[in-house]
Amino acid sequence: MASILTVDDSASIRQTIKIALGNEGHEISEAVNGVDGLQKADGGNFDLIITDLNMPEMDGLTMIRELRKKPDKAGMPILFLTTESDAGMKQQAKDAGATGWLTKPFASDQLVRIVGKVLAK
């Protein structure tokens, strides 16, 4: 199954993702902010990153931009999972190279389906 990195400063959200996707047999790693996410992404070989937008240290947008600079991460699917729904933000996320945008709150089965879809591509 897939190896997925979840980047979120909220432990409860990480835990929810971990349980939802872990039950599907995916292997989930956690990072608590953008800086941590970058490091973990560098150190591991992930099939997908699911990231929050607003985080301390480094936000999700900056992290995505940094990741997309790296040749081996250029094509990696990266989903935003955020309470934010500002259109300008979405445009920025798209420009930065985000694969998709999911809004919190989300249902576990919904997340599982989307992740399945993204991974199938």
């Binding site: 909220s10 409860s12 959200i13 607003n54 985080m55 955020t82 309470t83 919190k104 709150p105």
Partner: peptide, 13 residues
């Protein structure tokens, strides 16, 4: 702001 934001997001969750 970030703390409020996270609280709102996770709370709804």
């Amino acid at each position: 702001f970030r703390a409020l934001h996270t609280l709102k997001g996770s709370g709804a969750m």
